[in-house]
Design a protein around this nucleic acid. Sequence first.
DNA 1: CAAAATGTGTTATATATATGACACATGACA
DNA 2: TGTCATGTGTCATATATATAACACATTTTG
Lengths: 120, 120
Amino acid sequence: MTHSTLFGDTIRGIRENLRREDRRFSLRQVAQRIGIEPAYLSKIERGEVPPPSEATTVRIAKELDQDPDVFLAMAGKVSGDLQEIIRKRPKLFAELIRQLKEAPDHAILRVVREVRDGDW
Amino acid sequence: MTHSTLFGDTIRGIRENLRREDRRFSLRQVAQRIGIEPAYLSKIERGEVPPPSEATTVRIAKELDQDPDVFLAMAGKVSGDLQEIIRKRPKLFAELIRQLKEAPDHAILRVVREVRDGDW
DNA sequence: CAAAATGTGTTATATATATGACACATGACA
DNA sequence: TGTCATGTGTCATATATATAACACATTTTG
């Protein structure tokens, strides 16, 4: 069975770019630093297997100097620590997030800033 | 293997309360309306199996007239539609949610209201 | 008391998740 | 030209997920 190539294609692209500057970004060497089998990373990059677990996805993101949350999103996942925050106050966060579904980016950013600078 | 009894104990308690008023809330009848095997619901209530899938959890919540997001939280999950909203703008929502982690309820509620009444 | 309903124990799957091990063909390098 | 590194194909596995089917002992009801 084949899978969405978004995740695989993206990491392959980023890795190959890095490799042009640095031979340490071969598939094999990256796999070793991440702590997975080269064959497995190859399959991930070609979309032959579904995106890996949260932990492995985060390690890939860090190795390629990318944002873990963005990589998790490409992998169809949401970070466990975010989920935990939501699960502690499910009604509140569910309402907030659904409320913000259609809000433009700048509106959400404004909220983020308000909260950061807020005095409570 | 045994599992956290929070989910099971809670639904058993709610179901048994409902049953005092209405015989239709026997385990068997509830299971049939939900569309699962009575033996399976029995195991769920006793924590002999982990909480069921999102779909089944939501059907249980509705049958017992409870908030699906709260039931999903007890089941250790976050609603798929919330996850999808987050995955579409992972950086923005990740920052927002982590920012709100320690915020008191009333502060979050204020944000919800602001957004609802907001003009953009 | 007979029939029906109830909750539970046991057994069995089917599918997905998340990899690892090993071998091989090709290409780069010294 | 031999050695080394590279990417990939094939096979295997361990664990979790998410139930279903059936039988049985007990309780409730008419």
